[in-house]
Amino acid sequence: MVERITSRYRKLVFVTWFLTLDLIMFGAFVRLTDSGLGCPDWPGCYGKISPIGASGHIEQALQAMPYGAVSFSKAWIEMIHRYVGSLLGMMIIGIVYLAWRHRRELGNTPRLAIVTLVAVCVQGAFGAWTVTHQLMPLVVTSHLLGGMLLLALMTWLAAREKPHAPIAAAAARWRGWMAGGLILLFMQVALGGWVSTNYAALACMDFPMCHGRWVPDMDFHGGYSLFRGLGLLPSGEMISQNALTAIHWVHRNFAFLVFAYLGVLGWKMLAEPGLRGPARLLLVLLAAQLLTGLTTIFFQWPLLIAVLHNGGAAGLVLASVTLLVRLSRAHGAKIPV
């Protein structure tokens, strides 16, 4: 009986974790195809449950603005993202139910599952605000960070259920360093989201310099003004090229710090058998992120590479959280997981 309950719970956790990763990738596709306003209301599409029922409204929007934010393809992309998000929420409710009802059999407190449920509810709210605030960069970037936080929580839940080789007590010394690396990684994700939501990926078309200079002309105040509309400055004027350059330049250069920090840390942890798998994944994904980031510049932001770059960031969160959970299990570690 206990084995059957445990098996069912683990399967649900791993399927939900995989769906969370997929949803983050698809969310990047929504953002990069400019489909975020494919249905300009929420939760339905022009008040209908699907774009089929809203076809008349979509046709009118197309006639009014043939190259605008609304089209049949964009409406379907946006609504599929919402459908999958709703399914994810229901699956997390199922995890909470099982974690609470069978907490003795599972041997874990349901607290983490409950926190994950709260996180997915908040994420749903940000999804609605993304539409109602007309793709405001601060809201869209917060939505991206919320997705990464949700992935981190689901990875934590999944990592608790996956066995691994014992980890020596000496490895616990890396726990604080790994926590610091995860903070740096989330900062870089925020900077990358700010690049994407402000369409600043092509603000610097050369590498390693930007506009032929190591430190080009930049407007940090305009670029990092948080409370403003898409493509605008707080004054209502169009955002300047110097502001876009500042957004791109900061993300690009902060990436070198994250790459060096996590690269050294991952290399150090390869020596521990219980950490070798996620440490190797961390190193591979760092190299892949560097490659896709550079390719985005040289090939002018092709959609597939941009989505893979977002997926690589999610993979780095996944690997980092797995390492942190395993380090917390090292002999002598005092953090309950």
Results as ranks from 00 to 15, higher is better:
Gly89Arg: 13
Gly38Tyr: 01
Thr33Met: 07
Phe14Asp: 00
Leu37Gly: 03
Ile77Phe: 04
Lys74Met: 05
Ile80Arg: 01
Cys39Thr: 10
Tyr46Glu: 09
Ser71Glu: 04
Ala69Lys: 11
Ala69Cys: 00
Val15Gln: 10
Leu19Trp: 10
Leu87Pro: 08
Gln60Pro: 00
Ile77Tyr: 01
Leu19Ser: 08
Ile92Ala: 08
Ile93Gln: 01
Val96Leu: 12
Leu62Ile: 15
Leu12Lys: 07
Leu12Gln: 10
Tyr67Ala: 14
Pro40Met: 04
Thr33Trp: 04
Ile80Cys: 00
Asp34Asn: 14
Ala28Gln: 01
Arg31Gly: 03
Phe18Gln: 08
Ile24Ser: 05
Lys48Tyr: 15
Tyr83Asp: 01
Ser35Ile: 09
Thr20Phe: 07
Ala75Gln: 11
Met79Pro: 00
Phe26Gln: 06
Asp34Val: 07
Ile92Gln: 02
Val15Met: 10
Asp22Phe: 13
Trp17Leu: 13
Glu59Met: 10
Gly47Ile: 15
Ala28Thr: 02
Leu37His: 03
Phe14Ile: 14
Asp41Ile: 08
Thr20Val: 14
Gly44Ala: 13
His57Ser: 15
Thr20Gly: 15
Leu62Lys: 12
Ser86Ala: 15
Met25Val: 14
Ser86Leu: 14
Ala75His: 09
Phe72Lys: 11
Ile24Gln: 06
Gly89Val: 07
Tyr83Leu: 11
Gly94Ser: 07
Ser86His: 06
Leu62Ala: 06
Leu32Phe: 09
Lys74Leu: 07
Gly85Tyr: 04
Ser86Met: 14
Ile93Ser: 09
Glu59Arg: 11
Ala75Gly: 15
Phe18Ile: 15
Ala61Glu: 14
Trp17Met: 13
Pro66Gly: 11
Gly47Asp: 11
Leu87Glu: 02
Leu32Trp: 07
Cys39Pro: 11
Ile95Lys: 05
Pro40Tyr: 05
Thr20Asp: 03
Tyr83Asn: 06
Gly53Cys: 11
Ala69Ser: 10
Thr20His: 06
Gly85Val: 10
Met79Lys: 12
Arg8Ile: 08
Ser71Tyr: 04
Met90Ile: 04
Glu78Arg: 00
Gly89His: 10
Asp34Lys: 11
Leu88Trp: 03
Ile80Leu: 13
Ser55Thr: 10
Ile24Val: 15
Thr33Ser: 12
Ala28Ile: 02
Pro51Phe: 09
Ile58Arg: 06
Phe72Cys: 01
Val30Ser: 01
Phe29Asn: 01
Gln60Glu: 15
Arg82Tyr: 07
Leu87Arg: 09
Met91Gly: 00
Gly36Met: 05
Ala54Met: 12
Gly47Phe: 15
